[in-house]
Design a protein around this nucleic acid. Structure first.
Lengths: 126, 126, 126, 126
DNA sequence: GTGGTCTAGACCACT
DNA sequence: GTGGTCTAGACCACG
């Protein structure tokens, strides 16, 4: 859906839900909302909270586990990693991504670096 | 503790196609890809290009016309407004929005103003 | 000599149905038949009543919503605005329009102001 | 089409074209645009001017002839009646009709006699 | 060929 | 059951 004219800013609504859940959980970990070593709610609870099928929730958590951001203690539950460097790296990566996307989007609007800086100034002062 | 991943993360996939089309066209107008007074492709053409029903395309274009960003010459086609101020205002509005969202997202990651500035510096130098 | 009966007399039959619906609903709102804050019948009901496709009815209602004359409560229905000033302004506008058209039509018949006044007197006394 | 809610102000787009033509011609006669005894254009010419089928035009003219507003001179054409009283009566009737409709429409908007008078004042002074 | 309107029928989220 | 969106397909006036 929605391509042509310019493929540059295709809007893809078909982002899988589990990916969206991964993103949200990453943010919670990065921001420290769920700190290192902290226990997550059960898969079932998270699924309910997010009005999502437990399988979908499970898939999201597996993804996080693959990235070592959380680990599973059999029968006990899932915990956020104690590896703060890992978290910090993720934070850095996400921040860079956001920044890159921001500049890309501004470029798409036809804004030059100088113009972008002007918009940034308004917020930097806050 | 993870609180409800607001359903929005799932729901937001429901952005109506016609709204997405509106956004895309706005970008094309703002960036000057389609300049003031320039003729748009026909409704049917645009519909085909975007793999969308002509009615949906029509709805998107009506939206743009409501905002005076385009105007219609009956039987001839649709044209981008000549009102460059209108376009400039839109550009400004969109740029502010993007900037605001950027800062919000960075804040969600738990980044302070100072940290954000550091990321920005990497790009400002480009 | 008869000059071209402007095609309008024939063409004007093409007033889009949805516009006619808009006009009718406006009258109902202006006259207070549907008072401020009052709930409209459902889109489907109105469509049936007016022997019109639901989409056409929807389009008419969207038009009214664009003008802020009605607002939508998702899943609940559509309601007439509480903004009585808005309604009063519309009433004034419509009344002026009718009056203007009346005088125009009378002029087309070749009637002078004085003659028009005579016809009006007959009704003013009622 | 379009009934229900309130049959009072049904808008009927299905007014036959020939009726519309009759109305227009009557106005031309009433206003003196075509004076008493004046010759009309040929049916064919009138049909072309009005982008209408000659049969439709013919039907409209027959209607006028039935009302004695025009008469036919075989092989010579059609002429407006010399009977000025007839024209004057028609004028009166049409003017009354317009006035009546005007008051009706204003009533539909929920306007009282007093309010209507206010709107009229604005024009009477012109 | 252009835009505009309309219908019929379907699906969705929300409650 | 509510409003909202979308598609497919048709028809119209205008030039």
């Amino acid at each position: 859906m929605i391509e042509g004219l310019s493929m540059k800013y295709v809007i893809d609504n078909n982002i899988p839900i589990y990916i969206q859940l991964v993103e949200k959980l990453k943010k919670d970990i990065i921001s420290g909302k769920i700190g290192p070593g902290e226990r997550l709610l059960s898969v079932r609870e998270l699924a309910i909270q997010n009005k999502v099928n437990p399988n979908t929730m499970q898939k999201a958590l597996s993804e996080l586990e693959d990235e070592k951001l959380i680990y599973t203690e059999r029968t006990n539950g899932k915990y956020v990693t104690w590896d703060e460097k890992l978290i910090k790296d993720l934070k850095e990566r996400e921040a860079l991504l956001l920044t890159e996307k921001y500049f890309n989007n501004m470029n798409v609007l036809g804004l030059s670096k100088e113009e972008i800086v002007k918009y940034l100034e308004k917020y930097k002062g806050d």
